[in-house]
Each structure stands twice: as C-alpha cells, then as structure tokens.
Amino acid sequence: MDSLLVILRNPPYGTVNAAEAVRHAGGASGFDYKSILYLIDAGVFTAKKGQDAADTGFSGLGESLELLSDEMEVYVCQKSLKEHGLCEDDLVEGVTADDGTMLDHALKSAQTVMIY
C-alpha cells in the first residue's frame, strides 16, 4: 500500500497551510493510501476542541480531523502540546498523542512526506 506522511507545523486559519494539510492527508486516504497526519509545533492547535466556524465562511478543521480520523491516522506531538499550553483533554476525538516514536517510524516508512 502506498503511504503518505503529512506534517503540519502551522496553526489553523491564519494561513491556508492547515486546511491544505488536512485536505491532502484526507484526499490520499480516499485514494487507498495509508495516510498519516502529524501535528507538531503550533500545528497542534488544529486539533483543539470547540472550534466554532459559525458563519465565518471557514471550514471548521477540528471537526474535519475528527471525521477523517476514521480513515487515516492523526497524531499530535506531546512535547508541542505542552509547549503550547494544551493537554490531551483539550483535543478532538480520534487524535493520538505521540512521544516521538510514531514520528520516527513514519518518517522512516512513508514513501512521501509533505510538510506544511
């Protein structure tokens, strides 16, 4: 099975990076890729609970992550969570905190790595 690792380093909404990272990781899983989305640095805010897009015109990315986590793996860097004042209870369902073990493995095994 083809595999893709998408690493997201930027927080959501301020730039389009987070939306594109989620879109590409989700899209790859729809094409039978083993797809992994890894949130690190300020990218961890993309998994924060309670994002309310209301009538802003933005797609709510926390909700998208929750839905897509059924078909792809979503990891959040534990160290980055702590650095940004978040804990696992602050995150949407379906994402897994990682101590670096999964990132190491995914970097070695993925055929393609995209970094946002």
């Binding site: 389009v16 939306a19 879109r23 802003t56 015109g57 933005f58 797609s59």
Partner: peptide, 9 residues
C-alpha cells in the same frame, strides 16, 4: 471554498 469568498465579500 472552505474559506470566506473574497470577491463576493
């Protein structure tokens, strides 16, 4: 799509 539409806005 997925972001506010600039020219319409």
């Amino acid at each position: 799509s997925g972001l506010p539409h600039a020219s319409k806005g």
